[in-house]
Every structure is written in structure tokens, then in C-alpha cells.
Design a protein around this nucleic acid. Sequence first.
DNA 1: TAGATTGTTAATCGATTAACAATC
DNA 2: TAGATTGTTAATCGATTAACAATC
Lengths: 215, 215
Amino acid sequence: MDKEISQAVVSRLPRYFRYLGELKASGVERISSQELSDIMKVTASQIRQDFNNFGGFGQQGYGYNVEYLYDEISKILGIDKKHQLIIIGTGNLGTALAGYTNFSTRGFVFKGAFDCDPALQGKMIGDVEIRPIEEIEDFIKKNNIDIAVLTIPKEQAVPMADRLIKAGIKAIWNFAHVDLDVPENVQVENVHLSDSLMKLSYNINRYERFHGGKK
Amino acid sequence: MDKEISQAVVSRLPRYFRYLGELKASGVERISSQELSDIMKVTASQIRQDFNNFGGFGQQGYGYNVEYLYDEISKILGIDKKHQLIIIGTGNLGTALAGYTNFSTRGFVFKGAFDCDPALQGKMIGDVEIRPIEEIEDFIKKNNIDIAVLTIPKEQAVPMADRLIKAGIKAIWNFAHVDLDVPENVQVENVHLSDSLMKLSYNINRYERFHGGKK
DNA sequence: TAGATTGTTAATCGATTAACAATC
DNA sequence: TAGATTGTTAATCGATTAACAATC
């Protein structure tokens, strides 16, 4: 038991969670895998397989209780607990992420912001003051920070990641366009925006190739 | 021939492109699949399979010419051509994306910005003026816009996507936390930031479960 | 020519889908 | 009890890896 869950499955969990949240909000009490399949456009079989990786959440002849399933998935995702996070690099993107109230409702608490630009230090993002980079290690330890959001240029991201790891960070949400090499006790999630945009470009290109190019 | 390429392969192309760009910049002329494998931490076999989906870019006994391969991948990704894009929703995130000079170097040209807030209309993002939503359809047609970047709240995203599709947009880069339903001639690439953060949370949680919880 | 390394076929592995017995 | 729907095993499909003949 407690076998490793494939990342393919993990990637689908937030989407289940989102749909269940919407169903719950609109007062739906129970749902079958077939109904969910119709809404989400994935097979009922996959839904049942996915949930059964974590134990039986349903009941034969009835289906799944929406609220119960929602709560269980939130536990699986670990968003029933609070996560303290800091943002490193307070450019436009860092500031945008800091402002995501959406995150705070999911238990991600924005505790600190850091920037190497002295002109920014002392300014506020919401109710958090921008601090100099030198204070990072202390801050992480004193405030029990779990997650560092890296929104700094790629040249600085690798040495910064090493610093964060030494300071005991648990996870890095990496927006810098570089692959980080971390030990297995540190989790990394990359958001490579330009990769995403290139995929979009590929798909535009592919569609035009197959369907008679530009008109 | 010209068979459909799996999205698994497409997802890897931007990463190849990035590494090849770095190799090229540091003056490397040729590289074998084995050398690239060592650097990128993927199997040499996968590298050769991936490239061969698009034709033979290498030469037996020699390997791959870095510059040639880089250029070929840029053509496959369609980033050898210019893409005109507009940003809809000029909050922090929209503004951050508008400022990505990185994109302009890859042929993505930021042509217009739109927001429903009259207080923002008329203001500038770089050298682009924020316009009222009403002008979108006209603007798309007159300026040959390919891509719309959606950085608006999820409630507005679905009707906005419909409007954009009617106006002839080719692709939507969707940052709203909702699934868009589009016809097959419109490409969508989702960036669901909160899904990404939940995956990170899952992985923190999983690691702690397997390795003795918090210390 | 001999050595290196690709392009490509075959084998393996893993993920998705289908089927159905268990059971509410 | 009969009907519905899960949990789970088996079958299929697709993606990755291994192997090696082709060839530069």
C-alpha cells in the first residue's frame, strides 16, 4: 500500500477538485462517475481508477458524495493545511502572484517578499514589506516558510535555489526559465511560460499546415 | 506521412530548443544524442525518437549540428514567424506578461491591451494603450491578431472566449481558471497557476508522508 | 577502412479503457 | 429484491527504452 502515484494522476487532481468545488457550490449532493465524465470530458473509467488510487470514496449503486469527495481530495492535495510562502523577485510577475487572493483561500499564506533592488526594499505589497535578499535565510527559519516562489531572472535562479535549499526550504515554485537541480527532499514545480507559449505556436502552426494555411 | 505528433513530444520541444540555444550561444557546433542526454537528463533514445518524428536532422557518425537543429526546431514550433498578440485584462498578471521582453525576441509581438475598467483605459503599457473591450473585434481584424492572452476573472473568460472566436482569433493563451470549449480551428493553451501550486502542495505532502513527517 | 552515431525496428513498460463481479 | 454504480481485474493502447543494422 501507499504505492507511488503517477504524476499523470496527480496532474488531474486539481481539475477534479475544481469541478467538485463548483458542484458543491451549486448544491449538488451526489454524482456518479458517469455524470462527472459527461461534465469533465474524461472517461468514467479513468475517474474511478484515479480516485481508487487513494482508497474507495464512493458507494456502489449511489456514486460519490460531492462534499466528502471534495474534502478528501483537498486532504490528498495537502491544501487542508496552511503553507507559508515567500516571493523572491518583486517585478510585475512576483507582484501579480502576491496579489492572488485565490491562493490565500486555499491555505497558501503570503508571508514575505524579497528583492535585490534597494529602491524596492521597504515598499509594501499588500501588508508585506519588501526585504533585502540578505535576510532570506533568517526569515525562512523564523517564519517556518515552506515554499519559495522564484520570479527572478534565470541567471540568478540557480544560485538562489541553492541558498534556499541550504536554508531549509521545502519547495520551490519556479518561474525562472531554467531547470533547477534539487535534492529529493525539496519539491520543485516549474512554470515555464515561454514553453507554454511555444506549444501554442506549435499548435497554430500545425493546424494551418493541415488545413490549408492562412487564408 | 505528416502523422499527428503526440502532445508528449510537443511538450518536450521547447526544452530541447532552450538547451540548443544555450549550446549554440556557448559556441558548441555539434552534439550527439548521448551528450545531449547527459546534459538534459533524458534518454538518448528518446531524443532520437523525438527528432525523428520530424525527419532526420542528424548524421550517422557525427551527431547533430547544433545551429541547424536549433533552426529546425524553431521552424517546427512556428517561432520563425511573427505572432501578433493582444492581452485582455490588464491587472498585475496581464501587465507582467505584456512586459516579457523575452517573448518579443521569439517573434511574439504585443500589439494591444484591453480592459473593462474605464479608469485604466487610455493608460499605457510600454508603448501600447489600454483600450475598451468594445474595440476588440475591430482591432483583431484590422491588426491581424493571432493570439489573445486571457488574464481576466473566470466568470468573464467563457463569454470573452466566444467573442474572440467569433472575431476570428486563432489561439487563446488562457490564464483564467476555467476550461474553455473551443472549435478545432482555435488553439488553447491553459496556464492554471493554482493547479500548479496544488501539485506542489501534493508533492510536499507526499514527501512528508513517506519520510517521517515534519521534524 | 574502422569507429561513431544515427535512424528505425522490436521489446518493454506504463497508462488508459473496457468489462464485470461485488455490493450498496 | 432489483437496479445502479462502484471497485477492480483484464485488455488495449500508446509512449518509452533497448537494440542494432545502416551509413556517414
